[in-house]
């Protein structure tokens, strides 16, 4: 992947800083992901073409779930028992975050750009409360990323998808690129976005945002709608089901 670096000549760096175009053709193969009773997660495939004819520059694809408040606690020992310490709150943190790039992100973009365009999950988590006295805020941020990464909710890949990895980004002839990432079943069901960024010489040149909709269908949708919109009726229905099951069981018991 050093080719792209060699092709990126200083002559290309003529644009004004902050002048970011939206001319990056990109699309998502799975614009609608449906969740039915056999849902076990999905793949998201983002593909597009580098508008530069000579294929100069680096591609970064970020698949983001909606941001939500998050809390991280550190266990502390009280009377010999480990219990949760005070919670550190994040005003917003992405519920899902996958970043894919053709080579390691640190080589593509500066730390400042990564922070500014929120290209890594730590950069996207906004701390909103004070940390306990003597604690390090960045440790809590790192813990949030580490725990979510273990759950498969935060993923980072550089280079092409390999069989043993769950995602990757591949560059093809003619500037074509394709990024694949696995969306685990525990990722929230919501509106997602796939953002594609073209970097050249460490600067963002062009970007594009494509929406991805994940929605429940059929039986899953009806159950969820009932549970959230008519929760009292849903509760009664569950009790009725329990009573019916108990009644049938009692009938069978009586017979035998």
């Amino acid at each position: 992947m050093a080719l792209a670096l060699l092709c990126a000549t200083p002559a290309a760096a003529q644009q004004q800083p902050g002048d970011v175009a939206n001319d990056l053709p990109a699309a998502v193969a799975e614009e609608q992901i449906t969740v039915s009773s056999d849902y076990r997660g999905s793949f998201v495939t983002v593909f597009g073409v580098n508008p530069d004819r000579r294929g100069r520059g680096d591609i970064v694809v970020v698949v983001r779930g909606p941001t939500q408040p998050a809390r991280v606690m550190r266990k502390r020992q009280v009377f010999g028992l480990y219990m949760n310490g005070d919670a550190v709150r994040f005003r917003e943190a992405p519920s899902f975050f996958a970043v894919l790039s053709n080579r390691p992100l640190r080589q593509i973009a500066s730390a400042e750009s990564i922070w500014r365009y929120q290209l890594d999950p730590a950069a996207s988590a906004q701390l909103s409360s004070a940390v306990p006295a003597g604690a390090d805020p960045s440790a809590y941020r790192a813990a949030l990323v580490r725990l979510r990464r273990e759950q498969g909710l935060y993923q980072e890949y550089s280079g092409r998808a390999l069989p043993e990895r769950r995602g990757g980004l591949t560059l093809y002839q003619g500037g074509l690129f394709r990024a694949v990432v696995r969306l685990p079943a525990n990722a929230p069901i919501a509106q997602y976005h796939a953002d594609t960024y073209l970097f050249r010489d460490g600067r963002l040149v062009s970007s594009q945002r494509v929406p991805i909709t994940i929605s429940r269908v059929g039986f899953e949708r009806r159950i969820h709608d009932l549970a959230t919109q008519h929760s009292f009726i849903y509760g009664l229905l569950t009790v009725l089901l329990a009573l019916a099951a108990g009644w049938v069981a009692a009938l069978i018991f009586r017979r035998t």
């Binding site: 329990a242 099951a245 108990g246 009644w247 069981a249 009692a250 018991f253």
Partner: peptide, 9 residues
């Protein structure tokens, strides 16, 4: 609830 109902019956 289900198991206790069959028991109550």
């Amino acid at each position: 609830a289900a198991t206790s109902f069959s028991g109550v019956l």
